[in-house]
Simulated scan of single mutants.
Amino acid sequence: MKIKSIIAVLLVTAGCLSNATAQQIFRISQYQQHNFLYNPAASGADDNASVGALYRKQWAGIEGGPETFVVYGDTYFEKKKVGVSAFVYNDKTGPTSRTGGQIGLSYSVYLNGKKDQRLMLGLGGSFFQYKIDKNYLTDGDPIAQNDPSIMNAADSKITGDAAVGVYYRSSTLNIGISADQLIQSGLSLYKNTNATQDAQLYRHYFAIASYNWQTDPDNVLIPNAMLKYLPNSPIDFEGGVKLLHKDFLWLGINYHYQQSYSIYAGVKIAKKLEIGYAYDQFSTPLSVFSDGGDANEISLRYYFKK
């Protein structure tokens, strides 16, 4: 185990905590195509049922860098005006990992009697298991092996929480606001006879917006942005623009404020199967590490269209 790698991961993770990304809720670069992962009100917003998977490896050249795997699906029941979504995930950073899932429900209110212009209200319920790999922390380190704050900590904790959101969907403007980890459940990983040190989930707020600008019959420009806020931390912002050609090919660029730049691309085969890829290049301090300051993200999604 490389000590410098561990130190780098811990320092950058601390930096992420101060910038409200927090790593409590996984981050993906292709957020604009996966709104319901952050807002239960967007469940079924694409009308057609779909299933998909996403894998992200961040800071690939640094041991213990964040690694995320998500499997998801959603659908919309038009007669009931109800959308349903579900996803499970595993999110790992260094010695810690989260494995869990969420079920989201949305209800649509049609505006002006039009299905393609509606206000969606959503609720979500989640569960997860938080784990600490003590062997990762103590391997070859006699000081860590005798540290009571490590050895007395529980190996894992299972808990649950909730989310709520509002989402406006139309053929051009799509915008949503949501709050996750509303209950702020406790983790209580460390307890002994002399003291109790409790960790907890923190409430996260998201705002995601995009606009479809039809520049000509074949091309659509889609400016998009995401704001994330965690109380007592600065607002975190990322945004960019995506070019969609004939509902078949897309290219996009994004900027994550003071953290990274992203480029992404994908294809939609037979208007059913989406294959996407995103590459992130992180700024300092990660950029000083050889092959350390980047991330790779691959996504697959299948739509059940007639």
Rank of each mutant, 00 (worst) to 15 (best):
Y55L: 07
D74H: 13
G125P: 01
W59Q: 03
I28A: 02
A49M: 15
K80C: 10
A42D: 06
I25A: 04
S43A: 15
Y72N: 06
G94P: 00
Q33N: 15
Y107K: 14
V109F: 14
G52H: 02
I103W: 06
G124V: 05
G104S: 11
S50A: 10
Q24D: 10
A45P: 01
N112E: 14
S29G: 15
V109C: 10
D116S: 15
D47K: 11
K115E: 14
E78Y: 12
G100A: 07
H34S: 07
N35V: 07
S29P: 03
F128W: 07
Y72L: 06
T68D: 12
T96F: 08
F127S: 09
K57V: 09
T99D: 03
L111D: 05
N39H: 07
Y110M: 12
G52E: 03
Q117Y: 09
L111C: 09
I62M: 03
G61W: 02
E78R: 13
Q33P: 00
G44D: 05
I62K: 00
A41C: 12
L121Y: 13
Y55F: 08
A60H: 08
Y72C: 00
N90R: 15
D47Q: 12
D74M: 04
W59L: 08
G100Y: 07
A49S: 14
N35E: 13
M120Q: 15
G94L: 04
V84M: 14
P66R: 00
E63R: 06
S106R: 05
A45F: 05
G125F: 14
G101Q: 08
V88M: 11
L37A: 05
K80F: 14
I25W: 02
T75V: 09
Y76R: 06
S43Y: 03
F128N: 02
Q117P: 02
N112I: 10
